[in-house]
Design a protein around this nucleic acid. Structure first.
Lengths: 352, 352
DNA sequence: CTATTTCTATGGAACGTTCCAATAAATAGG
DNA sequence: CCTATTTATTGGAACGTTCCATAGAAATAG
């Protein structure tokens, strides 16, 4: 009651000092849990803080120490469950380590990305993680945040750019998926979704081609169907996939949401996905296992990869020696019911 | 080149002043776009800033002005697409208005929630939005952030608590959904998912009961199947829903992911959802329309509601007169293919 | 009993802004 | 030419911390 602060006035370290009958330096020491202050004194200070409702002002501390616990998290499309899961993995790791993330969802808009990067930088983050928007010019990132800020890129590799990168092994994941389709008897296997301008698409396409080449199967451009990585785009492309005399009997999709959109549209067109037609996705988002049919997919261990990316950034921030520059996470094929098996067609009736 | 800063040294307003041959006050004026500074001077200052790579230090400014552009965004479960969409709506509105959100995903953990609230507060946010974790004691929120910080709660109403609230009209949404099922001929309609301890569940249950009572249909506790709001829980409860001689022919689910989990499990048990069995969800998440069968659901206009919640918070922060204290968004029934129509059963064969 | 060491505690400068009061320069009015 | 007014610019204090250099007290050593 003695030194109750006026309304609207922040309680500061000085108020605490006055109340506890010590100097502000001592209060600061208590805050840092320094062994230099006597137990009894610490008690008194702690009591005063509780009594006056003190809240630590990290902004002021940052100003003095030039070291912040804020980090940036720039996500290209939070509406895609894959990136939501990435964000959760990042957030969790940051939370554990006492870092606090600022969130920006760029919605695949490179302009907005530049904008938020600058804004995040102004807020004095210690570093940031970015899953770059489609069409990002790597130079714009350094332009926006300056040459010294720790930045790690994730999930989408940027070309001609020295940023540390954390992402899944797209090529071998795609290769395993296509090999599985081949083993089931598929001979014409499409690649659906993504744009070849995206490095992730190219890596997955490479894996797709690897497997086809190894099996001596066709891999012409006619089997590649680029689209935006969305459910709607996956649905729209269905007609094109089904068209023509040499239509594929299976498809590896750029990611799970494209696969799910495609499956839905194929079903509407009478295709029996899981039997006459095989579809494999990529990412293993939560809804993959609850899809009808449950979606075979390549797990990128998204959450774990997010945690790794966060760790790399924090190593960079804390100046640890030899932080990893390039982490490629293993992938795992998760076989469920959507891959189909065309050689069984004879013992079934083909749906018109 | 003249006054190039040393490595590791931040470029400050003072460096700019020196380079441009003006005082730091003038530079500050330029920063604020004040009309007090002559065009020619402004030019010189701007040039110096570009040349030296100046970046505004919001932290320092906050310290002086005690007004920050940071806000907190505390989300109960970002892995649920519904909350991801909420987060996107919030982020978008904040971005537009020049606020920068800190993200915390509490993962329905009330302890962690208290923890992050305190941490967010320490970072000097101007206010925060919270979708409270299941089991939140309202008092813990004010305890963590003090009595003065603007806070708005969203999507889950807290009882015995004066926080402003923004959320959908759960009761009338549920009522409309159940009325639709009744019109299709269903007579035994279950409510699946959520816990009656959650206000949202209770509101939706009320709507369910309203419609059943109005039609003179049963609404006993035997028709209510509480679960966690997850896909997995929706799947697990399927057996219980189907059990007994008086099993329901339709269900209104707590939300879409419960509905999707339930549908999948029902399908595995031979139930023909959309024909012999009707399911309606709540939220209209993106995957609802791509589900098999496409899910009938109650749209909460999540993104828009998020934007509204952000607006309310910003009004509070800026001290606008009479900010709304309670915003209830309208809901809309989106009819797709999952609701079934049992009176058509005679003209079809029931799947065992 | 003095000199040294160990424990605790402290004052003050610094971090990068903003903003007020003050000033200098330019223009206008008489 | 002097005063009043407007237009541009400025120094310095303040915001809430941290941290360094220093100091007083208590304990130990010689």
């Amino acid at each position: 009651m003695v030194s109750e602060p006026g309304p609207g006035t922040r309680v500061t370290i000085i108020d605490i000092a006055r109340d506890a009958g010590v100097s502000k330096s001592t209060v600061s020491l208590v805050l840092k849990n320094s062994p230099l202050v006597k137990g009894e004194t610490r008690e008194r200070v702690l009591e005063a803080m509780a009594k006056l409702g003190y809240v630590y002002n990290r902004g002021a501390a940052n100003l003095r120490t030039a070291s912040s616990r804020l980090v940036g998290m720039v996500i290209s499309d939070l509406l895609n469950p894959f990136f939501a899961e990435l964000a959760v993995g990042l957030e969790e790791a940051f939370y554990r380590a006492g870092f606090v993330p600022i969130l920006a969802n760029t919605a695949e808009d490179a302009i907005r990305q530049t904008d938020v990067l600058r804004s995040i930088h102004e807020h004095g983050v210690a570093g940031l993680i970015i899953s770059p928007a489609i069409g990002t010019d790597p130079a714009t990132i350094r332009d926006a945040v300056g040459p010294r800020l720790p930045v790690v890129s994730t999930m989408r590799r940027l070309e001609g750019c020295d940023l540390p990168y954390v992402g899944p092994d797209n090529r071998s994941g795609a290769r395993a998926a296509v090999a599985h389709l081949i083993a089931l008897g598929h001979r014409r296997i499409a690649f659906v979704g993504g744009f070849p301008t995206m490095t992730t698409t190219r890596e997955r396409l490479d894996g797709w081609r690897d497997a086809l080449v190894a099996a001596g199967l066709p891999h012409s451009d006619a089997l590649v169907f680029p689209t935006m990585p969305t459910r709607a785009a996956g649905a729209v492309i269905a007609d094109a996939v089904l068209a023509g005399p040499d239509a594929p009997t299976a498809a590896l999709c750029y990611n799970d949401i494209v696969a799910i959109g495609l499956i839905r549209a194929l079903a509407e067109r009478g295709s029996d996905v899981g039997a006459s037609f095989g579809v494999i996705g990529f990412d293993d988002i939560a809804e993959a296992r609850h899809n009808a049919p449950p979606l075979t997919t390549v797990s990128a261990e998204t959450r774990h990869l997010g945690a790794i990316a966060a760790d790399v950034l924090m190593k960079l921030i804390l100046g640890e020696a030899n932080p990893p520059h390039n982490v490629i996470g293993q992938t795992r094929l998760i076989v469920r019911d959507s891959c189909g098996a065309p050689f069984r067609l004879d013992s079934r009736r083909k749906t018109a």
